[in-house]
Design a protein around this nucleic acid. Structure first.
Lengths: 153, 153, 153, 153
DNA sequence: TTTT
DNA sequence: TTTT
């Protein structure tokens, strides 16, 4: 391949994720993410600029989103751009550009997953239950689990 | 600020850049960029997937684009996502997501800018000639860096 | 230029930043940053892997670090790799690779800077004072402050 | 996980890759990569700054490196930082920071892998021939994407 | 040396 | 529509 298509976002969810299950029980989550960048303009005035992104997550990441993300959550998303187009009922050509995430890092304190106890309550509006043992963690950048320090160099 | 909005693309221009000059002689360049990623599907078949992006460059970068980029050019673009919306004449809400570039690296051989002479002819789709000696490819044998700048550590 | 040298880190400071001022009152901050990635190995076992990085910040970013960062702070750092080498007193060749940051985003709740009130206490060990009015915010990726939506396309 | 450790490089190999095979026939490639960034200093003078990185690739990527990369090759590398430490024979503590790559894009024309034939000769420093028709540079006129996959939105 |  |  001779191409790269990469997006990196840190921002807050505008609403709770919308999660659906396709045939085969494949989860798809979708939410709006606001990234706000602050800088000084030429006059030295602090300018805050917010951009809204549509983020789409599949499978394990979608299930994580369903369980742990909600309106206001701060997340890091790494993914790629994808533009879809279609015609609405009036025959108007429509475009929508989305960020298809393949890595998700939750940045809210309450949402850390590094602990071995994953059943903490988490400020969630949707609720959850026991036994959230992350069978689907499936973090995308596959380990590779190299023989580490026996590098022959 | 608590946000990040970053895009990294490597791809080819679909057409020559469209460059305009706003009042104040501010250059704005716009072009379509195709990023093609190749991967294997579950059956092990090589799948090639092309995504088109609208890239917008301002000022100096737009002028570089005008001078050196053309249909087919391979470039690295680093920038941020920006979605604009408007209503067309029929009153339909329209959206367009663009990548506003704030870094540009030309990856075609003929387009190297490391020389101090930026007035080379370009737009050449094939031709070459003498003097393509790429002295900077013959780089000093690996490391051996200098003893820092003035870092007090 | 035909090169890219970019690093993106999210992690926690191992200690309070070490900040020094060079002649000309130029601030330089240095700290260790731990990035922890969790993934499943082939056996499905959750593996947590921590890497330590040396981060160096200059000028305005160094001053932000001094004021707002401390041991444990969660930050996003964007920068570039730089390897320095020297000989110690025994004449041994030494190398050190650092991440020179040119963007910093504080991800701890208490440390948000988007508010207009910047004098909040912040769990800091070093303390601060009133009137921290961010004269040096100087976020690196210069605004560019484009004439926005009067884009001629 | 609450960490990110990501490196993105574009540069030229300083030497042919050094490839070794560990037990289990696992390939490991190692090479030096020079990234050169050009910018203007305060006096407006063009400054060119080269940084050398040690890149390590595993398995399939190492095999690609062996087949297609050589001294001077221009590549995009995406990976993560890893610092190893050890003591040399004299008992001196040594450190080495490497970029462990998990994505590789070859940016030299001759090295395009978009074809399904990966067995091309490479190591050729100049020659060319028939069949370099790059049909994928003649891409379909911009957008007009397909109506999504099966996304339920 | 961090974080959960 | 978020966040501070």
């Amino acid at each position: 391949m001779r191409g790269v298509n990469k997006v990196i976002l840190i921002g807050n969810l505008g609403r709770d994720p919308d999660v659906q299950f396709l045939e085969g029980n494949i989860a798809v989550a979708k939410f709006s993410l606001a990234t706000t960048e602050t800088f000084k303009d030429r006059a030295g005035k602090l300018i805050s600029q917010t951009e809204w992104h549509t983020v789409v997550l599949w499978r394990g990441l979608a299930e994580l989103a369903q369980k742990y993300l909600h309106k206001g959550s701060l997340v890091y998303i790494e993914g790629r751009l994808r533009t879809r187009s279609w015609e609405d009922k009036e025959g108007n050509k429509k475009f929508a550009t989305e960020v298809v995430g393949d890595n998700l890092v939750m940045l809210d304190k309450r949402m850390d997953l590094n602990s071995s106890d994953h059943s903490l309550p988490h400020h969630s509006s949707s609720g959850s239950g026991p036994g959230e043992s992350f069978p689907n963690l499936e973090m995308p950048p596959p380990p590779l689990n190299e023989p580490a320090d026996d590098l022959p160099f």
